[in-house]
Design a protein around this nucleic acid. Structure first.
Lengths: 354, 354
DNA sequence: TTGAAAGCGCTAACAA
DNA sequence: TTGTTAGCGCTTTCAA
C-alpha cells in the first residue's frame, strides 16, 4: 500500500479530469486489464516480469482501485457494519478497539454507525448500512423495532448482537447478563451490611441494559426483604456533575441513605465526589457503586466499586465470530456470555465503618 | 424508510437465496425497473398509482436497494470519509457529533476511520477509504506522509483538514492555532504571577498539535525571560493516573514549581487531584492548566483552567464545507480558523494566594 | 501465463 | 408518465 502510492504523479487523468481506471494502467503497462487486475489483487499466476511492469505503471499513475466496481463485480464487500448508540459513551470506543484489533488480521474493515439510542435512527442507519451489502453486522443490544429485526433476518449475512445476553438474538450474540450483574451488585452491597440503598441512573426506557441492571438489582434486594429507599433518573449523557446533583437531591429526600448504586461509573463518581465534599465518610457512612469499570476514572480520590463490562472482550469475540463466518449467510447463532468482574474498589466496604 | 421496511416478509429470494433486486420489485409490481428505480429514489414524475404499486411491492418483498450498483451507475457516493487518530480521546467523538449534526440535513453519511496516531496506518486507511470514492474527506491534522498527501491531492474530492491551523492545507482547513493557544496560556500564567512553571504532556513526535502548543508556550515564556523549570512526557492515552504520577515526579525533581501546564485536561486533572491530596493549595501555592475544555471533567473538586478547543464547532464547520462542495472536485481551499476560549477555572488565580 | 467476453445491479440519457 | 438502451469499472469464467 505504502509503496503503491509512493510516486503518485497524476491523480486524475489530466485531460478528462476523471479518476484513473484499470484501463489506464493497462495501457500504461501494455498488459491486459485482466492481468493488471490479477497483479493488483495478488491473484492467479502472473509472471514476475509482467507483475513488475504493472506495479510500476500503477505506482507512477497513482492508481487507486475502485472498490465499488470491484464489489459489484465480485459480489463481495469487505466491510463489517458496526452499529452502536453513541461514541460519547466511552464504553463503545473500547468495544470498537476490540473489534478493530481482530479485524486488523483480516481483510475486513469496520464501518461505524450511531443511533443515539433512538430506535427510528437505528432503523435508518441499519437500512443505510445494509444497502452497502456488508459482509457482517455487529449491533449493540437485543432490542430493535420489528422493521429492524425483519431487515436483519433478511440480510443474509452473519449478525452479532452485542453487550447484552438477556434476550433472544437474531443470529449470534456476545455479551453479559446485565440482570445478573445487577443482582450480583445488590448481593455484594447487602452482604456488606448496607440497608438503606438508593439508585440513580438513566431514564430507563432509553437504555435497556441499564434497565435490566436495575431490575436485577431490585430483584435481589426484594429477596433480601429490602426495597430501594430512593431513586432518581436523568436524561442526557452521564457526567460527574449529574452524579453530584442527583446524590445531593437524594440525600436531601432520604437522609437515611447508606448506599447509592449508580447505573454507570461517571455518575457514581460524581456522587462520590459530592459525598466527600460534604465530609461524609465513604464507604463507612455511605457506600457507592457504579457500572462499567472505566479505567478513565482510576485516578479519582477513591476507587469506585464497579463491575467490568468486558468491553474490549465483547468487541474481540464479536469480531472473531464475524471473521469466521465471513462469506456465510449467518453466524449460526453462536452465543458467548461473558462474566463481568465485580471490583469492590474503596467504596463498598461496610466493615470499615467505625 | 421506516415504512418501507415495515412489512418485510421475504428478505432473500427464497428459491435462489440471493438478495432481491430491482427486477424482483419490477416483476412483483408489473412496472419497469426504471420506474421502480424512480419511485424508490423519489425522482422524476411518476403517477400516484404506479408509485403506490411499487412501494407496496418493495415493502412486501423487503427490498433493500443495492447502493454499490447505484453508486457505480450514478458515479455518486454519498459518503464522507472521516479520518481521526482515535476515538478513545474524547475530543474526536465530539468532533464527530458536530459533523453528524450537519450531515444529518444532507444526503451525506460520515464513515469513520482511525489511525492510532500512526502515519503508516493513516496511509492505509486513507487508501482504503478513497478506494470507495467518497464525496468528501475530513481528516485530522495537517501532517501527513508524502504518499498520503499525494493521494489526497489526486483524489479529486473536497478535503478538509481539521483541528489545526498552523501549517498548509491540501485543500480546505478548519481548526485553531495550537501554537497561539500555547502562547495565550503562557501569557495568562505569567500574568497571574507564576514564575516556576513546569510542563507535562504526551511524547511530542506522536502528537503534532500538543507539540505546537508546547512550542507556542515556551515561546511566550522566553519572551518573558522565563524557561520551563521542569518537564515530563509520557506515552499512551492520557489518564488521571498518569497526571498524578507525573505531577509527583516533577514535584520531587523541582520542588520550587508553582505552576504545571498539562498538554491535556485529563492529565491536568490528575495533577490537580495529586496536589490536593498532598494538601497543596491550588492555585495559591501551585496553579494548573490543561487543554481541551472537556466538559466530562466538570464535576471535579476544582474547575481546571483550560482552553476550549472548539471541537463540535470544528466538526460543524468542516461538514458544512464538505456539504457545500459535494460533487465538486475540491473545497476551493476554504479556511476557517476558530478562536479557542481561555477558561481560567479555579486553578489559575495567583491573586488568591495568601 | 495471458486474454476476451459477459455481466454484477443499478441509473443516465434518450425515445415513445 | 413510462420504457429502452447502454454502460459505470471491475471480476468471473472460459478459451487460448
Amino acid at each position: 500500500m505504502s509503496q503503491r502510492a509512493c510516486h503518485v504523479t497524476k491523480p486524475f487523468d489530466d485531460k478528462n479530469h476523471r479518476p484513473l481506471t484499470l484501463r489506464d494502467v493497462s495501457e500504461a503497462s501494455g498488459v491486459s486489464e485482466m492481468t493488471v487486475s490479477r497483479v493488483l489483487r495478488n491473484r492467479g499466476d502472473v509472471s514476475e516480469a509482467t507483475r513488475a511492469k504493472v506495479i510500476e505503471a500503477a505506482k507512477n499513475l497513482g492508481y487507486v482501485p475502485n472498490k465499488i466496481a470491484g464489489a459489484l463485480a465480485s459480489q463481495r464487500v469487505n466491510l463489517v457494519a458496526v452499529i452502536v448508540p453513541s461514541l460519547g459513551n466511552l464504553v463503545f470506543p473500547e468495544v470498537l478497539n476490540g473489534i478493530t484489533e481482530i479485524l486488523d488480521d483480516s481483510p475486513l474493515q469496520p464501518v461505524v454507525g450511531m443511533t443515539n439510542y433512538e430506535p427510528e435512527r437505528e432503523e435508518k442507519v441499519l437500512y443505510e448500512m445494509l444497502s452497502w451489502r456488508p459482509s457482517g453486522l455487529i449491533i449493540a443490544g437485543l432490542e430493535h423495532t420489528e422493521a429492524s429485526r425483519a431487515m436483519m433476518r433478511n440480510a443474509g449475512i452473519p449478525i452479532v448482537e452485542i453487550m447484552d445476553s438477556d434476550g433472544d438474538a437474531i443470529d449470534a450474540m456476545v455479551g453479559i447478563s446485565h440482570r445478573r450483574a445487577g443482582r450480583q451488585m445488590a448481593q455484594a452491597i447487602i452482604d456488606a451490611g448496607y440497608k438503606n440503598i438508593g439508585f440513580m441512573g438513566t431514564k430507563l426506557p432509553l437504555d435497556h441494559r441499564a434497565r435490566k441492571r436495575f431490575e436485577g438489582f431490585t430483584e435481589s434486594m426484594a429477596k433480601a426483604g429490602l426495597e430501594v429507599v430512593d431513586q432518581e433518573f436523568y436524561d442526557g449523557g452521564s457526567s460527574l456533575v449529574k452524579g453530584r446533583e442527583m446524590a445531593a437531591d437524594m440525600l436531601k429526600r432520604a437522609p437515611e441513605l447508606d448506599f447509592i448504586y449508580a447505573s454507570n461509573d461517571l455518575i457514581g463518581a460524581g456522587g462520590m465526589l459530592y459525598l466527600m465534599d460534604q465530609g461524609i465518610d465513604v464507604p463507612g457512612q455511605i457506600g457507592l457503586a457504579g457500572f462499567n469499570g472505566l479505567r478513565l476514572l482510576d485516578g479519582l480520590p477513591k476507587k469506585l466499586a464497579t463491575m467490568d463490562a468486558c468491553r474490549a472482550d465483547i468487541g474481540r469475540e464479536a469480531a472473531t465470530i464475524i471473521a469466521k463466518a465471513a462469506g456465510a449467510h449467518s453466524a449460526d447463532g453462536a452465543k458467548v456470555v461473558l462474566e463481568p468482574k465485580l471490583q469492590l474498589g474503596e467504596t463498598l466496604k461496610r466493615a470499615l465503618r467505625r
